Amino acid sequence: MSAVPGIKNALEPITLDPMDPTSGMCSGAKAKTCEGLLSVGESVFVETGEANVHFMLYAYADDRHAAAAYDALWKGWSMSVKPPTRNEAVGVIGERRDAVRGTFQPSSSGDPAVAVQVRVGTTLLVTHAYGSSKEWTSGDRIKALATMFTERSWQAQAGRNPSAQLE
Results as ranks from 00 to 15, higher is better:
Met1Lys: 13
Ser2Asp: 15
Ser2Asn: 14
Ile7Ser: 08
Asn9Ile: 00
Glu12Met: 05
Pro13Gln: 08
Ile14Arg: 13
Ile14Gln: 15
Leu16Glu: 09
Asp17Asn: 15
Asp20Val: 01
Cys26Phe: 10
Ser27Met: 05
Lys30Asn: 13
Lys30Tyr: 09
Ala31Ser: 14
Ala31Ile: 07
Cys34Pro: 10
Glu35Trp: 02
Glu35Pro: 04
Ser39Tyr: 01
Ser39Asp: 11
Ala51Gly: 07
Val53Gln: 03
Phe55Met: 06
Phe55Asn: 01
Ala59Lys: 13
Ala61Pro: 00
Ala61Leu: 11
Asp62Lys: 07
Arg64Gln: 11
His65Trp: 05
Ala66Ser: 15
Ala69Ile: 03
Trp77Asp: 04
Met79Ala: 15
Ser80Asp: 05
Lys82Phe: 04
Pro83Gln: 07
Pro83Ile: 02
Val92Asp: 15
Ile93Phe: 11
Glu95Ala: 14
Arg97Thr: 15
Asp98Ile: 06
Ala99Val: 08
Ala99Ser: 14
Phe104Val: 06
Gln105Trp: 13
Ser109Ile: 00
Ser109Tyr: 01
Ser109Glu: 12
Val116Gln: 09
Val116Asn: 10
Gln117Phe: 01
Leu124Gly: 08
Leu124Trp: 07
Val126Asn: 14
Val126Gln: 12
Ala129Asn: 01
Tyr130His: 12
Ser133Leu: 02
Ser133Cys: 04
Ser133Trp: 02
Lys134Val: 10
Thr137Asn: 07
Ser138Glu: 03
Ser138Arg: 07
Ser138Asn: 06
Asp140Glu: 15
Lys143Met: 04
Leu145Thr: 09
Leu145Met: 14
Ala146Met: 07
Ala146Asp: 05
Phe149His: 10
Glu151Met: 05
Ala156Cys: 01
Gly159Gln: 03
Pro162Met: 09
Ala164Gln: 12
Glu167Ser: 14
